[in-house]
Write a protein that binds this DNA or RNA. Structure first.
Lengths: 205, 205
DNA sequence: CAAAAAAACAAACGATTGTTTGTCTATGTG
DNA sequence: CACATAGACAAACAATCGTTTGTTTTTTTG
């Protein structure tokens, strides 16, 4: 690293603090239930000061979304890196990381599930793009599964993601861990595909 | 019925129109993304006039929720009435009715999935109560399933409801019908439980 | 240390929010 | 007809919204 390589790293700006606080509010009160003043006050600054860091409230949401997608993507990638197993094992590892990020990670990942594009029409297009970029990972993982020929891979993916993203609405700490929940979800689907494949092709080992 | 039995029936008030328009806005813009003026204008009246029918915006949401729960409950009950089949068949029929109500029915049923209690703190308790009253039906249907002893019925229910309620976020008309989707969802879970039970108890017929 | 850039303050802008109040007009009843 | 009630209008209320502007403070840099 050159001597003048301090292009961006620097010590943390207040910008990062604002992002984190905004994520918390967006998760707990929703995008339209959160005001610029809520965020500014919690960050110990005045409403107008936020506009030095972000040109608009929707741009702030996009920035939070980007960070959320980056974090949950990194968590899933890390889990997959140490998982040389079969296709089902890899999908399970991804689901465990996904759920852990949603329930135990920072609020960033949670935002991309709590806030939907319709909540911020001006940013909707970009939010969808970010979300899709992440979910592509799951499409690849599902595509690698051995499945009966009449099954619909993308439907299995949507079903799984729906079940996973619904968890934050009922999850209570102290019960089953996120990983345990993810494993159960996969188990509920895995045997189904195996059995179905068997019935179709009559090749049970 | 006595001669003066006109306690409530009457011809439809404008109240019903307001409820329907509110449901539409709540579904498309969210609760906090919808203003009293949005609803009033669409109903052809002035903002203040809504307060003759409903004491507050949150009370209006509760009324919409009640109608939504009533309608989707009726749809599921009707489907179950003509379904004397096994436990899995009955659960499938309920899911078909649930999904059809969400995707093809009025906006009322959709609201109870789109708006979450956190969006209206003052009404949260009541919204949760209404939602739970409905989901109890599914708990009963799942409890009737033949499942391996180590399986978690309520987890299966939550997984299924999560998958179903996620559909409105990606559903596009012209593809598979709501009923078809529900059947596929159930198929994905059904064989899983069957196979798992078999492995556990070694009693495959 | 001096100049420049970054970051926050202070104060307000117009617009919109949910809601209230008082008045008016239908409609049906005795 | 007289009258009561239902239902909507008209107008405003204080509060809060996202945002802008000009200035001041803090930090970095040459």
């Amino acid at each position: 690293m050159a001597a003048h390589a301090k292009l961006k790293p620097q010590v943390n700006n207040r910008r990062d603090l604002v992002l984190e606080i905004a994520a918390g509010f967006f998760v707990r009160k929703g995008f339209n239930g959160t005001s610029i003043r809520d965020i500014a006050t919690a960050a110990g600054m005045l409403p107008g000061s936020l506009y030095y860091h972000f040109p608009s409230k929707e741009a702030l949401l996009v920035a939070v979304f980007e960070e959320g997608v980056a974090r949950i993507s990194a968590a899933v990638d890390a889990a997959l890196a140490g998982c040389p197993g079969g296709a089902w094992d890899r999908l399970q590892a991804a689901c465990e990381a996904h759920l852990a990020a949603l329930l135990e990670g920072s609020d960033f990942a949670h935002v991309i599930v709590r806030v939907i594009p319709q909540d911020a029409p001006g940013a909707a297009e970009e939010l969808v793009k970010l979300r899709n970029a992440y979910e592509t990972k799951f499409a690849a993982l599902v595509a690698a599964l051995p499945m009966p020929t009449d099954a619909n891979p993308s439907l299995l993916r949507l079903m799984l993601i729906g079940a996973l993203n619904h968890v934050p609405l009922w999850y209570r700490e102290g019960g089953e861990t996120p990983s345990s929940l993810a494993r159960r979800f996969i188990a509920n689907l895995r045997f189904a595909q195996d059995c179905s494949a068997t019935r179709k092709e009559e090749t049970w080992p």
